[in-house]
């Protein structure tokens, strides 16, 4: 078994643990913690898609990951700007 594949599987396991942790962060009371958890969830999901796409050579996983990364971060920044001006 290739060592690179083993390391990619280790990264996938770490990312799944991180996804569960971000779900726990999202459930905190404040809106800001929800935003922080959502942005971290987006990053973890992007990384997971890129890793799986690399393992199985699926091209469109990377396109989806790129769109998710850009739209997730831009959306989070936009919502943070709205939240800042709301008060």
């Amino acid at each position: 078994m290739d060592i690179l594949l083993i390391c990619e599987c280790f990264l996938i396991i770490a990312l799944i643990v991180f996804l569960i942790a971000t779900l726990r962060i999202i459930t905190y009371k404040s809106i800001s913690m929800g935003l922080i958890g959502t942005s971290s969830f987006t990053l973890a999901l992007t990384l997971l898609l890129v890793t799986v796409g690399t393992i199985y050579n699926i091209g469109f996983f990377k396109d989806i990951a790129l769109a998710l990364l850009l739209l997730g971060i831009v959306g989070t920044i936009a919502y943070a700007a709205v939240l800042r001006r709301a008060e």
């Binding site: 809106i31 800001s32 942005s39 919502y79 943070a80 700007a81 939240l83 800042r84 709301a86």
Partner: peptide, 8 residues
């Protein structure tokens, strides 16, 4: 995120 939390 930090700025939004501080102001809200």
């Amino acid at each position: 995120l930090a700025n939004a939390y501080f102001h809200s």
